[in-house]
Design a binder for these strands. Structure first.
Lengths: 125, 125
DNA sequence: ATATGTACCCAAGCTACAAGGGGTACATAT
DNA sequence: ATATGTACCCCTTGTAGCTTGGGTACATAT
């Protein structure tokens, strides 16, 4: 599996990683059960930090595109193909957009929305 | 109408102003139709910036607690008493909390939520 | 001339968060 | 010993928003 990373890109490195893995799965280049390179290995190959790769892997596992099996390494998830198609962030964007539109429709200030937002994010409600 | 402002308070000045006007209305100290001090007048009395007072007045007018009549000055709104009781921000807080809880329930990262939020706030959707 | 609300410009000081990196450590099991 | 994912600590850089301020200007109508 070829993975390329561009430091000068506007897109964050971990986002590039996630996108490329999902793309490889969708194209059939990576099939269910195939072994992924280890975090340290990939980080070394791409000459980037372990934690950047680890972050990408963490997101990929949450989306059930890969499966980490502890000391045995990381593998492509059985349902990787279906799960690579769903865009969680797009859904978040739509839902959030609806909520915020309702606020702006009744003349709630953007500043007030931001303050409420930061309260919610902090208080873990 | 006595208005006091505390610079050393954690609460922003314009928020203190809004709260005190609403409180005065609810207590009956200020009745519908009563004249508010002008923006420049109040700013000068409290030794704060015009724009800070103007901001408070803008919010009070949106909430229909006061009414600005251009060069004639600013007055307490006919429905000020009812409108001083409703808390717009509390409603925003509740709605936003529901939406964000749905995100966290499906393991969307706080970071992802923040990014989506800033996109929505920018794109004016 | 004077006063009203309003709308711009610009700035300082502060806080929060992002992305990325450096390093260290742990339990797991081969 | 070695490799795995994972979890902490610290840090730098950059971006963004908030609050408050200073200043200037405008149309309004007295």
């Amino acid at each position: 599996m070829r993975i390329i990373v561009n430091i000068d890109d506007e897109v964050p490195l971990f986002t590039q990683l996630v996108a490329q893995v999902k793309k490889a799965v969708l194209s059939g280049e990576m099939e269910a059960g195939a072994a992924m390179p280890s975090i340290r290995q990939l980080a070394n190959d791409l000459q980037i930090n372990n934690k950047t790769v680890a972050k990408a892997y963490r997101l990929l596992e949450r989306d059930q595109v890969i499966q980490t099996k502890g000391y045995r390494g990381t593998f492509i998830h059985p349902d990787a193909k279906e799960n690579s198609g769903v865009d969680l962030n797009a859904w978040v964007l739509r839902e959030l957009s609806k909520t915020i539109k309702a606020f702006r429709d009744v003349d709630v200030t953007d500043s007030e929305i931001r303050i409420a937002f930061s309260h919610v994010m902090h208080n873990r409600n």
